[in-house]
């Protein structure tokens, strides 16, 4: 597999660590009323789509950036690779 790193270009997947579903970016608000329920879903529930899937990869043997990779699980075609930090900021995460 090759991941087209947004800063470094195409890199062999052996440089990366795979963590799974990008929903892990959406850590719930611990102050929310149903925080326990939300954290339960966050920690345990995953979709297993046949098709487009957003997942987190870590360029561990590279620039150490966390990436959001959109991959088709049927074909392994990768349609987009983004820096997770920027995605997180765009989603309103801060400190």
């Amino acid at each position: 597999m090759i991941i087209n790193h947004p800063l470094l270009g195409p890199r062999d997947s052996s440089e990366f660590y795979h963590m799974g579903d990008a929903v892990l970016m959406d850590r719930p608000d611990p102050e929310a009323e149903n925080a326990a329920e939300q954290f339960h879903d966050y920690a345990y529930l995953r979709d297993n789509p046949a098709g487009e899937y957003r997942e987190l990869w870590y360029h561990e043997q590279g620039d150490r950036s966390w990436l959001v990779v959109t991959r088709d699980t049927l074909t392994h075609e990768i349609s987009s690779v983004e820096l997770a930090r920027e995605v997180a900021r765009a989603q309103g995460r801060s400190k």
């Binding site: 963590m19 892990l24 970016m25 850590r27 987190l56 870590y58 150490r64 950036s65 966390w66 997770a84 930090r85 920027e86 997180a88 900021r89 995460r93 801060s94 400190k95």
Partner: peptide
């Protein structure tokens, strides 16, 4: 690295 880049990107 996950925490600092993704959960707390502005730290």
């Amino acid at each position: 690295d996950f925490c600092r880049q993704v959960l707390y990107p502005d730290m």
